[in-house]
């Protein structure tokens, strides 16, 4: 363990910690707005952007590939919005269309690149499965800064995002630019996806958004706590996953996601009140209660 804790790996740990917090927080809003699948589509549609950036810049330029991923995701978002606006294609269908088309184009581009005599091609593959081993200090600093920026924006606009996520029409009646705020949330989702790609990978990035948020929901009934717990689960997954990946020589992305999935299972089982065990106990209690006559009261909500 001690030989693993070099200066470089400490920097990497700092990066994945913040990126875990960032995807945990943004993932909550995505899950609450029922946009889990949009995150998956954005991750997959980034591949052609990463490949094109690689081709244009010639060699591995970290920030250029992130920018390419962001732009490709933005185009994917635009096409999804256009399909919704101008055709009768339902949202789930348009998500599937964008996800597979863009990813297919990305795989073709990647094959072309692999036939070329270019250096640094392995950097491309680390975007697909996620790999922190090849990262240099500047890469990690970029991830850290972008994650911190995203978290700062959520902290600043917490009230506004909460309102728009819960009741966008009410927000609009009150005079908030509800569509703009919703679009900002969408951009932050895209940003969180892009930031996470190098470490977690295109294939698994959506899980990094959804699993911590879904796990956090078991522990609390308050949004602020859900964000904090989800951020904590994201951070813990990032740290433990990166450690396992570095010491066992496995790709980073799958390690991080498996740790997150383990934390999800723990939450599912053992969380008080909403966990499976607590719910079963409550049901057993209620069965006894039903044998006594019901008191007068309003019927429960459907």
């Amino acid at each position: 363990m001690s030989e693993w804790l070099t200066y470089n790996s400490l920097i990497v740990l700092q990066g994945v910690t913040l990126l875990g917090a960032c995807s945990g927080v943004i993932g909550c809003f995505a899950v609450l707005r029922r946009r889990s699948l949009v995150g998956d589509a954005l991750a997959h549609s980034s591949l052609p952007g990463v490949c094109l950036a690689f081709l244009l810049v010639g060699e591995k330029h970290f920030w250029a590939m992130l920018l390419g991923a962001f732009l490709a995701g933005l185009i994917g978002l635009g096409i999804m919005a256009a399909l919704k606006r101008w055709t009768r294609i339902k949202e789930d269908a348009s998500i599937a269309i964008i996800l597979s088309t863009f990813f297919g184009a990305g795989v073709v581009l990647r094959s072309l690149i692999q036939q070329m005599p270019l250096s640094g091609r392995s950097g491309l593959d680390s975007f697909i499965f996620g790999q922190t081993a090849g990262m240099i200090e500047e890469d990690v600093h970029l991830i850290t800064a972008l994650s911190a920026g995203t978290l700062a924006i959520v902290a600043l606009c917490y009230k506004e995002f909460k309102l728009v996520a819960f009741d966008p029409e009410f927000a609009q009646v009150q005079g908030w630019p509800a569509r703009l705020l919703d679009f900002a949330l969408m951009l932050l989702l895209l940003g969180a996806v892009v930031i996470g790609l190098p470490a977690v990978g295109i294939l698994l990035m959506a899980a990094m958004l959804i699993i911590p948020a879904a796990a956090a929901r078991f522990w609390t009934r308050r949004l602020a706590w859900m964000l904090l717990i989800s951020a904590g689960i994201g951070m813990a997954s990032g740290i433990v996953g990166t450690y396992l990946s570095a010491t066992q020589g496995v790709a980073t992305g799958p390690c991080i996601i498996l740790v997150a999935a383990g934390l999800f299972l723990l939450s599912l089982g053992f969380a008080p009140k909403r966990g499976v065990i607590a719910q079963q106990l409550a049901r057993r209690r209620d069965r006894f209660r039903l044998e006594t006559p019901l008191g007068a009261g309003e019927e429960p909500a459907p």
Partner: peptide, 19 residues
């Protein structure tokens, strides 16, 4: 709205003051 959203009754009423 989604009534499973993680907010309390007081949270929702406070939204009336956001404007």
């Amino acid at each position: 709205v989604d009534w499973d959203f993680p907010v309390s009754v007081l949270d929702v009423v406070l939204m009336g003051t956001y404007g």
